[in-house]
Design a protein around this nucleic acid. Structure first.
Lengths: 143, 143
DNA sequence: CTCTGTGTTCATTTTAAATTGAACTGAATG
DNA sequence: CATTCAGTTCAATTTAAAATGAACACAGAG
């Protein structure tokens, strides 16, 4: 699954381990079970936390930090869209809005070509708008 | 945009060039304009064709093959889902279906833990089902 | 304070992915 | 049929991404 989303294998492994373990695991548990370096696990956990794919759990009488997986598809998808897809879409959306026909081709063009390019620019702006509307709906549908 | 979808930059460049050009372009045009190797362009065009992001155009009296971009968002999304996401989802879906509780943890477990794991397996299967239903709807919504 | 256990940071190394380019296929041209 | 043109293939190279591990914080215990 991670692969399909363009996410490193190690993150998938960490999430998978948490998913397949009924009890929350601590940092060192993960390092040991996966035979992975502390650095990787640290970075992996940070990413998984920022996309809200895992949540920290406090175990009283133990100063270590434990983690358990978020298993609600909706939350997983929402986190992914928010942290990964939306930022990208917003930056290219902002740039698309500023596009002027001349940016596509500085010199003068035959009327036909001009029309085709104007149309393409419109399409681009429409894409952006549509994406902005649909992505939130996707989260809802999956919830 | 390509980046957001985990697609190599060069493919984005080829598509972008076609998109920003009112007339169809031939293989060699792309090589020249992008300063890219023939190998890359060849592979890039192949990929873009299989996801139906570009379409070949015949120009009579010219034996070269020309290409123009597909600009309908729906077609682009559908192609991407079909070629990239669906195959992955299907393979992990098939494996999820075969999952037996014992696969998660071979030895006996406390009742609580057993219940949690059974629940996780159910979740996994539910994800798969939901993904299978929602993805086609996404194409429709974007169309 | 100092020491131990937990976890983070980041420069280096490793691994994986993308790109190149030379050799090749195959179809049209003469 | 040779020869050029159009594009493909694939081993080798380059480039980018991810993993490592040593050095570093920082909090709590003694």
């Amino acid at each position: 699954m991670a692969q399909a989303l363009g996410i490193p294998r190690s993150l998938g492994e960490i999430y998978g381990l948490l998913f397949a373990t009924p009890r929350p695991l601590a940092f060192q548990d993960i390092v040991d079970r996966l035979g992975m370096s502390k650095g990787s696990v640290s970075q992996g956990l940070r990413f998984l936390r920022t996309v809200a794919a895992i949540k920290p759990v406090v175990v009283s009488g133990d100063r270590r930090e434990f983690f358990e997986p978020v298993v609600e598809l909706r939350q997983l998808v929402a986190g992914f869209l928010r942290e990964r897809l939306n930022p990208q879409i917003e930056t290219w959306g902002a740039r698309a809005k500023e596009l002027k026909p001349a940016d596509f081709s500085p010199d003068t063009l035959a009327g036909d070509d001009r029309k085709i390019l104007d149309n393409r620019i419109d399409k681009l702006k429409a894409w952006q708008k549509r994406a902005g509307m649909v992505l939130p709906m996707v989260s809802k549908l999956l919830g």
